[in-house]
Design a protein around this nucleic acid. Sequence first.
DNA 1: TGGTGTGAACAACTTCACAGCG
DNA 2: CGCTGTGAAGTTGTTCACACCA
Lengths: 215, 215
Amino acid sequence: MRSIMKFSKIPAVTITRLSIYSRCLEALAQEDVKIIASDKLAQKCGINPAQIRKDLAYFGEFGIRGVGYFVKELLSEIQRILGLNKTWKMALVGIGNLGLALVAHENFVRQGYEFVAVFDVDPAKVGRRLPSGQIIHHVDDLDKVVKEKGVEIGVIATPAGKAQNAAHRFIGSGVKAILNFAPIQLQVPEGMAVENVDFTVKLDNLAYHLTMAEP
Amino acid sequence: MRSIMKFSKIPAVTITRLSIYSRCLEALAQEDVKIIASDKLAQKCGINPAQIRKDLAYFGEFGIRGVGYFVKELLSEIQRILGLNKTWKMALVGIGNLGLALVAHENFVRQGYEFVAVFDVDPAKVGRRLPSGQIIHHVDDLDKVVKEKGVEIGVIATPAGKAQNAAHRFIGSGVKAILNFAPIQLQVPEGMAVENVDFTVKLDNLAYHLTMAEP
DNA sequence: TGGTGTGAACAACTTCACAGCG
DNA sequence: CGCTGTGAAGTTGTTCACACCA
């Protein structure tokens, strides 16, 4: 049964947790841990051990009964499942403070993600070259550049008011996945994957928690 | 029954959605929309209308049957529920690209969040003043400064390897809420609220989606 | 009349508990 | 023996459908 995927509706959260497992396993591999049981891994991730086993079971049987999981092997299986055995090409729209920070962020490259193109509308920025090497294109050229470079994931780091427009450009250019940092609910057609990175929402959660915890 | 909270275990996701509703309502208020029905609001948020009504019902009765909700009134009710009728004081650890972008991000202030202190370990940075006015303190002074300034929310924007240490500092200083940008699962004591802002995980979700959608 | 508020049905996800295997 | 893999039980969250009221 090994490595046979049972596509019986995998919960969305399972994928998120796989990503977390892979992180913990990377740390373990670095500490030279060879084998780990679901209980220990669970503790490290703050997740129930049965949950881990169930999540993995959607994709195959990766453990050894009575023993646990080989750290390196499990890590590479998870990375394969997530599609991290290739480099994903990303394009960024919005070269503000946040956009710059994202392009400069070395975590992406280490993880198999790469910014191959960047865009803005500001004429003062267009044509300039970033420290990381990319030339800033005008958003009007997005369609052309995205197709030329084979961009697969669009990243939006514009102000909220410009985000939907940026999304439209990506949609038109055939990009099928968007990572959205703007605090707005994007309207996209069926089949388009959108993930929101939304610190305002997270902060509101904390504010609520603190307000409730008051005496 | 108006304004009476029925603390009967409110789902965590409800709070997240309230934050999204408040955003949509802000946009509607700006477009001078006075009244909105749950169906329309649902469409704008990409959420089921019954879900919206149920979420609101946890906190009171804010609508008028046969009519809908007064936009401004509902907005201010939600903001009150979330605890946004005050300014929350935040401290940031880690003045890298991301940290700088966060401090410069004007969205926070507009929303009632303010960075009152910033920290780093780099001697070359400590003592300098940011464009936004804050002096960079050494992390060793975190406890003192946090108490002096009455910091309520800690923000971690360090590399993964330094994040747990930063968390420990915040824990020791009495801060009860952490917004964590580092790609690591923080270990914190009971009663501490942690929210992770995790774009690597979000990207992995997109990568998985794209991999599955392949022919 | 038309949309809210809500019990009741449904769906999704999590945890338990233990058979089964290395 | 000990830990995985997994059905079954439990829990949590979502949607339906309609009574009820402005």
